[in-house]
Amino acid sequence: MKVAVLSGKGGTGKTLVSVNLASVAKESLYIDCDVEEPNGHLFFKPKNYASESIEVKIPFSDEKLCSGCRKCVEFCKFNALAFIINKVIVFDNVCHSCGGCILLCPEQAFAEKDKLIGKVQYGVSENVTVMTGVLNPGESSGVPIIKKLLQDIVSGPELIIIDCPPGSACIVMESIKDADYCILVAEPTLFGVHNLNLVYELVKLFKKPHGVILNKCVEGENPAEKFCLEKDIKVIGKIPFDGGLGTLNSNALISVRENKKYHDLFASILQVVTKEGSYETVTNP
């Protein structure tokens, strides 16, 4: 079962939830798709056994073949191309490697070159296989790295945890595309509700079975919980705003490996996820 963990903004607890759910399972695969700032590996400290460079294709134009029709410049949604003094300039860092300019060019003036954008690392941390995507700073899109991560999923572990990037943009869509179940992590504030709504809209659009984990829960009213009640979203777990948990986490320790109380907390959440996920898979094929 592939479980994606997402949230509308950074710092809500995606990695806390992902790392601990992966660790509390008997055996699992943890995939860090937050390629702009992957930090699951800081907790797992995996013994890496392999690493692979990720390259994308960047177009370049042959000015001898270019007729100056500008079809490519007008097509490019990302404005990665400019036509200056009878020459097409390509901005490598803006180009998303969609290949549209190459397809459209009536003179076939484009060729492609490889460009290194990051890497994928493979490692092991006790019962967890750890895959980490790393996008080099300044690159336009982490989607090619996420594609590689998800296409390379090793067979074996029944539970696969996909730690998603924050937000609801292309890289998140790519990360949840093949997920069987989505966990939305939410903070107990009005701002938290706004961010929860972003990812809630996304998983609804993708018709993904989903549930919410309320993180940083304190006594009193929880706007995120209220939102779940109103929208009839299942709350699959509550994580308290807890000094002990915060200390372990800020020391880059995996709480379920350190403390029985947290082990039980995440084990019970995983139980619900497994039940919800398989139930939904049967009813929503």
Binding site: F78, N79, A80, L81, A82, F83, I84, F91, V94, S140
Partner: peptide, 15 residues
Amino acid sequence: ASQGGAGIKAAQTIV
């Protein structure tokens, strides 16, 4: 209104 690359597009207009 460009999602990205506004500077490139604007500069193209100027050129």
